[in-house]
């Protein structure tokens, strides 16, 4: 196997709080191959968001190393795109200008016209054509999240980091966005890390699900999800999916300390 695109090696991290250090990550190892899409699930407050900040170079781990594309991450880099649960669109800009924001920071070869065309194309891809000149306040939550996704992709990042981007949406909108994610991945290939609380979301979108243990988090379990191209929602209701969900649910219970731990293994 070639070297993974995202490689997190033995990362340990603790936050300094008033009542002493609070360890959140303990010897965590995660690797995602190029074009892979890993979902990270785990109990709340187990350090999943810390993980995204480490990959994005927004924080440095206490010990251990984070590598992207064969280079050690020492600080923020322009090859990363991020989307959060809060779409954080800039209210004073149109949707199009919001999507173009990263290109004002990252050096780009695109001319102004080409950049705009690309932004329009992305907006069309997520079904927001016709909303380019609207303000974020005129859009619904799901639409804002789609615009935020376009912004994360505009500069063609190698790595897309999604920190619970669909967490605040209603169930139907969320399923909509899952399918859009498949469409986007096909047209705009990326290597992705998805933080989520939703097990169905993890097996629907990702080709590998990583279960983190409770705090301090370490890799407790890894589940490979057979993935052959885009899926439709039917996929959620197959016996295979049901079986995977059962395994993951059990692992989450272990992580929460509600079920006895067993030796962790990697299911194929």
């Amino acid at each position: 196997m070639t070297q993974p695109l995202i490689d997190i090696k033995g990362v340990t991290h603790a936050y300094q709080t008033q009542s002493g250090p609070l360890p959140v990550l303990d010897n965590l190892n995660v690797s995602v191959p190029e074009g892979g899409f890993a979902a990270v699930v785990g109990p709340s407050g187990c350090g999943k968001s810390t993980l995204t900040r480490l990959i994005a170079g927004l924080m440095k781990p206490d010990t251990g190393e984070v590598w992207l594309h064969g280079e050690r991450v020492k600080g923020p880099r322009s090859t990363v795109g991020m989307a959060f649960q809060n779409p954080v669109l800039l209210e004073w800009r149109s949707i199009l200008k919001n999507v173009l924001l990263p290109l004002e920071i990252v050096p780009t070869k695109l001319s102004k016209k080409e950049a705009e065309d690309r932004a329009r194309h992305l907006l069309e891809l997520v079904g927001l054509d016709g909303f380019e000149d609207k303000r974020p306040s005129e859009l619904s939550g799901g639409m804002r999240q789609r615009a935020s996704l376009c912004r994360a992709l505009i500069h063609q990042p190698e790595v897309l980091i999604l920190d619970e981007p669909f967490g605040a949406l209603d169930a139907f909108t969320r399923e909509d966005l899952w399918q859009i994610m498949h469409r986007v991945k096909e047209e705009e290939p990326f290597t992705g890390v998805l933080i989520t609380h939703d097990l169905r979301e993890s097996v629907f979108l990702a080709d590998e699900v990583i279960v983190l243990s409770g705090r301090p988090a370490t890799t407790q379990y890894r589940l490979k999800v057979p993935m052959d191209g885009p899926r439709d929602l039917e996929h959620l209701y197959t016996p295979e999916t049901a079986e995977m969900l059962a395994i993951l649910r059990h692992q989450i219970e272990i992580a929460q300390g509600r079920a006895p731990a067993e030796s962790s293994e990697v299911a194929e």
Binding site: P76, L90, W92
Partner: peptide, 29 residues
């Protein structure tokens, strides 16, 4: 200012000054 606003630009390597002009200042208006 919500940290996510800072993070979307900081993760791309934007300087503090850029973040101030593009986000913090207009958001405070």
């Amino acid at each position: 200012l919500e940290p996510e606003y800072r993070d979307i630009l900081r993760s791309l390597g934007a300087s503090r000054m850029t973040i101030f002009w593009k986000i913090a200042l207009p958001k405070t208006l």
